[in-house]
Design a protein around this nucleic acid. Structure first.
Lengths: 117, 117
DNA sequence: CCAGATCGTTACGGACCCGTATCATTATCC
DNA sequence: GGATAATGATACGGGTCCGTAACGATCTGG
């Protein structure tokens, strides 16, 4: 059974969640950074720079820089892959998990407020 | 009747839409810019710098700069308020309306894919 | 072993954004 | 009128990010 959302509801939801993100003084993440963060937390490990670059359709330096920022925010960590030391494995953190969880709550909360048709 | 979304579904939806936004080479808007754009297109005019700053809980220069960028992208325009020439009125554009509409479609499409419980 | 491929990172010049403080312009009120 | 207030824009020093190109480190195959 598909999840039915009307375009007008979708926009209201999108706006309300973004307003909350901005007002809570969370880091002002870009779309790219958000996509990376959620991919790491939703998809099965392992995650590599190359893999993320391919999934997002961007170059590797873009991923490296986004990981720098997300790492600085404590939302993600990097670790050398000991099996193949060329690889870097991106790992989750407690703070990152909390942030993702909070985002999920934000979305579900505002969905309730908006109401179905 | 409230719109029911489970946290796990909310995250999937959030990720898929962001992935599309990144992959389509749309401008990599930050959360702030997105909040401003949607506020202008969803709330009733008139919109001023001060009003937006208050709604988002940020300072005026933040709004001015975001409007610079969104204006450069053609998603928004500024116009002096002739009634009170201190004010600047933020106006919608055709390109902006299309972008917002596309975002709405993106969200509704992915919502269908994800499916309800 | 060693040339070649593959990994993630860094260098570079340029653009954007940050927060704070200040600015010019315009309106208000006595 | 003139002081005051309010609006949006700008200056500043500093940080982040961009895309392209190059880099060192590491693996692989003959």
């Amino acid at each position: 059974m598909p999840l039915e959302i009307k375009p007008s509801q979708a926009l209201k939801l999108w706006r309300q969640v973004h307003l909350d993100l901005v007002r809570d003084h969370d880091a002002d993440l870009s779309a790219r950074q958000t996509a990376i963060l959620l991919t790491v937390y939703l998809e099965l490990p392992p995650h590599t720079v190359r893999g993320l670059a391919r999934q997002l359709g961007v170059t590797k330096p873009v991923i490296t820089r986004a990981l720098d920022t997300l790492g600085k925010l404590g939302l993600l960590t990097r670790k050398r892959d000991e099996a193949d030391r060329r690889n870097v494995v991106i790992q989750r953190t407690v703070a990152g998990a909390l942030a993702v969880e909070r985002l999920a709550d934000l979305v579900t909360e505002h969905a309730k407020e908006i109401g179905g048709s």
